[in-house]
């Protein structure tokens, strides 16, 4: 506990690094990410935003487009502990959280930490595991602690889960329930690389994997300093109001069966802060919010069946709805009455 008090005091003081330093470090990480996933800057940026906003990332796409590579590159770029869990139907919750084993020599139970005890956890193909195992991970994500046999084990900070999943229409998967999707800050879709990027990839990877070249450019302390720096970004009342208006609009919209949660609003603002900091700005613009609405809110709303059937896919329907809501929500410009 004294530790956390010290931490919060230092957080209240000026951030350890300024925006220039933040910019330098973030560029270094971005360089690493772009080296492994050719031509996907926005995906790389978004994954960095989620990491710096202390959120969890859900990467969703068909197999073989580089989901795991991205997650690995992110983890290796920061010299933080990384663990990887390949989710399979027979994976047990204890494989994730850890297990207490009786040590006969010491004559007591010892806790063997599971895969979540790392700074960055790559949960590969999370929708292949049984719901029981999924929820064990998702609980850790929210609580940032593990309780085994009545003992609570805190997880280290930073702690970020990068989960990948195949689209739910693929065979042999268990779709994440709405409530659990809500715990991810953002969902991104990798998408296929364009022809040029795919060609470059073929050429580059013939000899060795680009992942091997990746070196850590940011250590744990620097990562935490970056996180603190992003938290200091200013959010005006107008922007807060704007976010709330958008959130409320999703709850009122006739084409939406389930609107976004208050947690979503929180995530949206946090992510926007990092996005502003990445652009070297110390305040959030409505444009930051607009850019993040689809990745941050998209996986949380449930469109009506009619709305889905009107579109090619559920994702299209959601993007269309959110775009419409963002356009219709006025951007508040406030001025004092006095002339």
């Amino acid at each position: 506990m004294p530790d956390s008090i010290t931490q919060s005091r230092s957080r209240a003081a000026a951030p350890d690094i300024d925006l220039d330093e933040f910019d330098r470090l973030s560029r270094a990480i971005m360089g690493n990410l772009e080296a492994v996933i050719n031509g996907k800057t926005d995906v790389a940026t978004l994954s960095l935003i989620v990491l710096l906003a202390e959120g969890h990332l859900l990467v969703e796409d068909v197999p073989g487009v580089g989901k795991t590579t991205l997650a690995k590159a992110l983890a290796r770029s920061v010299s933080a502990s990384v663990s990887r869990i390949q989710f399979t139907p027979d994976l047990l919750p204890s494989d994730v959280t850890g297990v207490s084993i009786f040590n006969q020599q010491a004559n007591r139970f010892e806790f063997k930490p599971g895969a979540v005890f790392a700074n960055i956890v790559i949960a590969d193909e999370i929708n292949r595991a049984s719901p029981k195992t999924q929820s064990a991970l998702l609980e850790c994500m929210e609580e940032r602690q593990v309780s085994v046999d009545g003992v609570t084990h805190l997880l280290e900070t930073p702690f970020s889960v990068v989960a990948t999943q195949n689209p739910i229409e693929m065979e042999g998967t268990f779709a994440l329930p709405e409530a659990q999707r809500d715990r991810f800050m953002a969902r991104i879709s990798m998408g296929y690389p364009d022809a040029e990027a795919e060609l470059a990839m073929l050429h580059n990877r013939e000899l060795q994997s680009p992942l091997d070249d990746i070196e850590a450019v940011v250590d744990r302390e620097e990562l935490q300093a970056m996180t603190r720096c992003a938290r200091e970004v200013f959010v005006s009342r107008a922007v807060e109001q704007y976010v709330v208006n958008i959130a409320q609009a999703t709850r009122r919209d006739p084409e939406v069966r389930l609107g976004v949660s208050p947690r979503a609003t929180l995530h949206l603002v946090r992510a926007a802060k990092v996005a502003a900091a990445l652009e070297g700005r110390d305040f959030v613009l409505p444009d930051d919010i607009d850019a993040l609405v689809i990745p941050v809110l998209g996986h949380r709303i449930v469109p009506t069946r009619k709305s889905v059937s009107d579109h090619r896919s559920g994702v299209d329907a959601i993007e269309e709805i959110l775009t419409r809501i963002v356009q219709a929500t006025p951007v508040p410009l406030v001025a004092a009455r006095s002339l």
Binding site: L285, D287, D290, V326, Q327, A328, T329, P330, V331
Partner: peptide, 8 residues
């Protein structure tokens, strides 16, 4: 449009 940000 009222939905425009200054940048738009």
């Amino acid at each position: 449009s009222g939905g425009d940000t200054p940048a738009m």
